[in-house]
């Protein structure tokens, strides 16, 4: 298992009640297994089927993208700038 820290914002931060959470995920971890772990947390039921995940400040493409401890991982709610 690996411990992954995940940044949360806006409606997701409200739902999870925190601006950052740490989850345990089996290795090798992917966006998909990370999201599954987040969904199991209190508040995780608000997540859509495939929430946006950013790694090191870039959007990931696809659920198979690997993630590891030490990366800057963020769960991104639907954006609404402008």
């Amino acid at each position: 298992m690996t411990q992954l820290q995940v940044l949360l914002f806006a409606s997701y931060a409200d739902a999870f009640g925190a601006s950052q959470v740490t989850v345990s995920v089996a290795e090798p971890a992917t966006v998909s297994t990370l999201v599954d772990a987040l969904r199991a947390l209190p508040g995780g039921d608000v997540l859509p089927a495939t929430p946006l995940v950013a790694v090191d400040r870039r959007f990931t493409r696809g659920e198979a993208v690997p993630v590891r401890a030490g990366q800057e991982i963020a769960l991104i709610p639907p954006v609404a700038g402008g």
């Binding site: 963020a74 700038g81 402008g82």
Partner: peptide, 14 residues
């Protein structure tokens, strides 16, 4: 720029 900003810049509004 405005269309891409609205589509992909992580900013939220309440």
């Amino acid at each position: 720029v405005i269309e891409e900003l609205k589509r992909r810049v992580p900013i939220w509004k309440r």
